[in-house]
């Protein structure tokens, strides 16, 4: 790869977006000592950093005590990694000691010297005590901030755990419903085959009229885009497409969803799945992903 081609790679390199082959070609070129490309890459990395630090910084200002919360975490790590620096000394200063130990120069001078020394010592002690109290108070405030931060973490973890339990419960309910339908004597399956937008996808809709229950199981569908939902349709000879329920898909995750049974006393020609606005529509408007005819009863 020549110099010009390498230079074209630099903006993507600054964003860490190079494919492995291109990245190794660039590294080789820099190792060969191309100062122009090295300087350009450095400047583009500065550009990328400026972009990162400029776009959205105020989004973090929602927490007024953000710095304190991060500092509480850092301080805890500092304390774990090394003992706290000792507080400044609390012994009387050498000056004060010299005052105290000065020889006898008369009772009054000695008394005056002692008094002066006492004042110096008391002043030093008062200053030290004040600073110690201030430090202790600052430490306590930081400890409180750290505990507050830990409580917030625990609350967030608890919320996530509750959400996960709720999601698992919903999956379990759908599975129980599916097993009930699958064991029904009047089970009827509609296999939905993939169309071009979802070449690897497939789905089965299990219907039991006696249980008045239908469950869709799908896999391989693309993740549902924001603001959209997949919608199942029963297409009957009498009324054309009839909406049968909405569901969402996560990338790589199978879907199990309760849907509506086909209209009674109507002849179902097809089942189909389309991508529609998240609230659903009464007649299909979006791309069709899956389609298939009902199997034998």
């Amino acid at each position: 790869m020549d110099h010009k081609a390498i230079k074209e790679l630099l903006p993507l390199a600054a964003l860490d977006q190079l494919e492995p082959d291109d990245a190794s070609a660039l590294q080789g070129h820099l190792r060969d000592g191309c100062e122009e490309c090295e300087a350009e890459l450095r400047a583009l990395r500065e550009t990328a950093a400026a972009l990162a630090l400029s776009l959205d910084e105020s989004a973090a200002t929602r927490a007024a005590d953000f710095e304190e919360r991060v500092w509480a975490r850092l301080r805890a790590r500092l304390q774990q990694s090394a003992p706290s620096p000792s507080l400044p000394g609390t012994r009387p200063s050498a000056l004060a000691r010299r005052h105290l130990l000065r020889g006898s120069v008369g009772v009054w001078r000695a008394a005056a010297a002692l008094l002066a020394a006492a004042v110096v010592v008391a002043t030093i002690y008062a200053g030290q005590l004040k600073r110690q109290l201030q430090r202790a108070r600052a430490d306590q405030l930081r400890e409180v901030a750290a505990i507050h931060s830990q409580l917030s973490d625990l609350s967030a973890q608890l919320r996530r755990a509750r959400d996960e339990v709720g999601a698992l419960q919903r999956v379990l309910d759908e599975r129980i419903r599916l097993e009930r339908v699958l064991s029904a004597p009047d089970l009827r399956l509609t296999r939905l085959e993939p169309l071009l937008p979802a070449a690897g996808a497939h789905a089965v809709v299990a219907v039991s009229a006696s249980h008045d229950t239908a469950v869709l199981q799908a896999s391989g569908l693309p993740a549902t885009p924001a603001g959209k939902a997949y919608e199942l349709w029963w297409i009957t000879k009498e009324h054309g497409p009839v909406a049968a329920g909405l569901f969402r898909a996560e990338q790589g995750q199978p879907v199990i969803a309760s849907v509506a049974v086909p209209p009674r006393d109507e002849h179902v020609l097809l089942g189909a799945v389309t991508l529609e606005p998240a609230a659903g529509v009464s007649k299909p408007t979006g791309t069709m992903y899956l389609k298939g005819a009902p199997g034998p009863a």
């Binding site: 990162a52 630090l53 400029s54 776009l55 959205d56 910084e57 105020s58 989004a59 973090a60 200002t61 953000f66 710095e67 991060v70 500092w71 850092l74």
Partner: peptide, 14 residues
């Protein structure tokens, strides 16, 4: 932390 913390948080929030 005071100088860069919030700006870095803006990036991380993406």
């Amino acid at each position: 932390n005071v100088r860069y913390g919030r700006a870095l948080a803006g990036l991380v929030r993406r």
